Simulated assay, not measured.
Amino acid sequence: MRALPGGVGSTQQDPARFSSLIDDVEERLFAALPDEAWVYPGHGKDTTIGAERPHLDEWRARGW
């Protein structure tokens, strides 16, 4: 799963894939880890859960 920074990654404009991926990211990362937990994505710079958490609603609204 590619997640962060800036979103959950490409779902090739498939709403079902996006919904599944963002739901998984919210459950497995944001619900399970504290804000100070570091995340090391495959692309982009390292970040923390707390730095990305405020963007969840934006990602959902954007749809990618």
Results as ranks from 00 to 15, higher is better:
H43A: 14
L29P: 00
D23W: 05
E36D: 14
D46L: 07
E26G: 06
D35K: 02
I49S: 00
V39E: 04
A32T: 03
G44D: 05
W38S: 11
L4Q: 03
M1S: 07
S10I: 10
L21V: 12
D23P: 00
S20H: 11
L4N: 10
Q13H: 09
R2K: 05
D14W: 02
M1C: 02
V39G: 05
T47N: 03
G7R: 00
I49P: 00
A37G: 02
Q12D: 15
R28S: 07
R2Y: 09
G6C: 06
K45T: 12
E27N: 09
T47H: 09
S20T: 10
D23H: 09
G6F: 02
Q12F: 15
V39A: 15
D14C: 12
A32E: 10
G6W: 01
P15C: 05
A31V: 00
Q13W: 08
A16D: 11
F30P: 00
Y40K: 12
P34N: 07
D46P: 08
I22H: 06
Q12I: 05
W38N: 03
F30R: 01
V39W: 13
D24L: 10
V8W: 01
L33Y: 02
E27R: 15
E36C: 09
D35F: 05
P5Q: 04
G42R: 09
G44I: 08
E26N: 13
W38D: 05
P5K: 04
Q12K: 13
Q12G: 08
H43Y: 15
L29G: 01
S20R: 14
V8A: 08
L21Y: 01
F18R: 06
R2N: 10
T11K: 00
E27T: 10
S10D: 14
D35N: 11
F30Y: 05
G9H: 04
G42N: 11
Q12C: 08
E26H: 05
G50F: 04
E26W: 05
I22L: 12
Q13S: 13
R17E: 09
L33Q: 04
I49T: 04
E36I: 10
M1K: 02
L29H: 01
D35R: 06
D23V: 00
G44W: 06
D23A: 15
G42W: 06
E27H: 12
A31I: 01
P41R: 07
P15N: 07
G7Q: 03
D46G: 06
V8Y: 02
A32G: 00
P41C: 11
G50S: 07
L21F: 07
D35M: 06
D23I: 01
P34A: 10
E36N: 14
P5T: 05
T48C: 03
D35W: 02
A31H: 01
R2A: 11
T11L: 02
S10R: 07
G50M: 05
A16R: 10
W38H: 12
